[in-house]
Amino acid sequence: KSSGQLMAEWGLDDVDYLFSEEDYHTLTNYKAFSQFLRPLIAKKNPKIPMSKMMTVLGAKWREFSANNP
Rank of each mutant, 00 (worst) to 15 (best):
L57N: 04
E21V: 07
A8C: 10
L27N: 00
P69A: 07
D14P: 05
L57R: 00
V15C: 05
W10M: 12
W10D: 12
Q5T: 13
Y17C: 06
N29S: 10
D13T: 15
P39L: 01
S2H: 14
E21R: 09
P39I: 01
D13L: 15
F36K: 14
F33L: 01
G11S: 08
F64I: 02
E22C: 06
W10T: 07
T26A: 06
H25D: 13
Q5Y: 04
G11P: 01
H25I: 13
Q5V: 08
S3E: 03
L27H: 01
F33G: 00
G4V: 13
T28S: 12
L6C: 02
A32C: 09
V15P: 06
D14L: 02
L12M: 14
S20I: 10
K31F: 10
D23R: 00
A8K: 15
Q5E: 11
T28M: 11
D16F: 03
M7A: 06
G58Q: 08
R62H: 12
T26L: 13
L57T: 03
D16I: 03
S2L: 07
L6W: 07
L6Q: 07
N45K: 01
T28D: 11
T26H: 13
L57I: 14
A32R: 11
A42F: 14
K1L: 04
F19W: 12
S20F: 03
V15N: 02
F19G: 03
L57C: 10
F19M: 05
A8L: 14
A66P: 04
K31V: 09
Y17H: 10
L12G: 03
K1N: 08
S20G: 13
T26S: 08
Q5F: 04
N68A: 12
P39C: 04
M7C: 07
A59L: 13
K47H: 11
F19D: 03
G58C: 11
M54D: 06
P39E: 11
L18R: 14
K1Y: 08
E63L: 04
G11W: 01
S3L: 10
Y17D: 03
D14R: 06
S51F: 05
T28L: 10
F19S: 03
M54I: 11
Y30E: 10
L6R: 05
M7V: 04
Y17L: 08
S34A: 13
L37V: 14
L37S: 14
Y24I: 07
N45E: 02
F19A: 03
I41G: 03
N67F: 05
Y24S: 05
E21P: 11
K47N: 06
F64S: 01
L12A: 10
Y17E: 06
A32Q: 13
V15L: 09
T28I: 06
M50T: 14
D13Q: 15
D23L: 02
T28V: 09
R62L: 10
F64H: 01
K1I: 05
F19L: 05
E22M: 07
E22I: 08
Q35Y: 10
S3P: 02
M54T: 01
K44L: 12
E21Y: 06
K52C: 02
F33M: 00
A8V: 12
E9W: 03
H25E: 13
K31L: 10
A8F: 12
L57H: 00
E21I: 07
E9A: 11
A42L: 15
Y24Q: 08
D16W: 00
L12Y: 15
A59E: 07
F33Q: 03
D23N: 08
G58A: 14
L27Q: 00
S34M: 05
T26Q: 12
V15E: 07
S3A: 07
P49E: 11
D23T: 03
W10R: 05
E22Q: 13
M7N: 04
S3R: 02
D13Y: 13
E22A: 12
K44Q: 11
A66V: 08
T28E: 07
F19C: 03
S20E: 09
D16K: 04
A66Y: 10
Q5W: 02
E22H: 14
E9P: 03
A8I: 15
G11F: 07
K47R: 13
A8W: 09
E22V: 07
K31Y: 08
Q35G: 10
E22W: 08
G4Q: 15
M50S: 04
Q35M: 10
S2I: 06
L12H: 06
F64L: 01
G4M: 14
Y24K: 09
S34L: 05
K43R: 07
E22R: 12
Y17P: 09
Y24A: 05
N67G: 08
T26F: 09
Y24W: 09
A8T: 14
M53T: 06
T55L: 12
A42G: 04
Y30R: 05
W10Q: 07
R62G: 13
L57D: 01
Q5H: 12
L57F: 01
N45Y: 06
V15F: 08
Y24M: 09
Q35H: 06
N45T: 01
G4K: 14
L57A: 05
L27G: 00
K44D: 03
Q5N: 09
D23M: 04
G11V: 03
S34G: 06
S3M: 05
E9I: 06
W61G: 01
E9G: 08
D14G: 03
G4C: 15
A32I: 11
S51G: 13
K1G: 04
K60Y: 06
D13R: 14
V15Q: 02
W10H: 11
A66F: 09
S3Y: 08
L6A: 04
L27D: 00
G11Y: 10
R62D: 08
F19E: 03
L57Q: 01
I41V: 06
N68D: 09
Q5L: 10
A8R: 15
A42R: 07
L27C: 06
D13I: 15
L18G: 08
D16L: 03
L27A: 01
K1R: 03
A32P: 00
E22N: 08
A8N: 13
R38G: 10
E9S: 11
D23I: 05
K47F: 14
W10K: 11
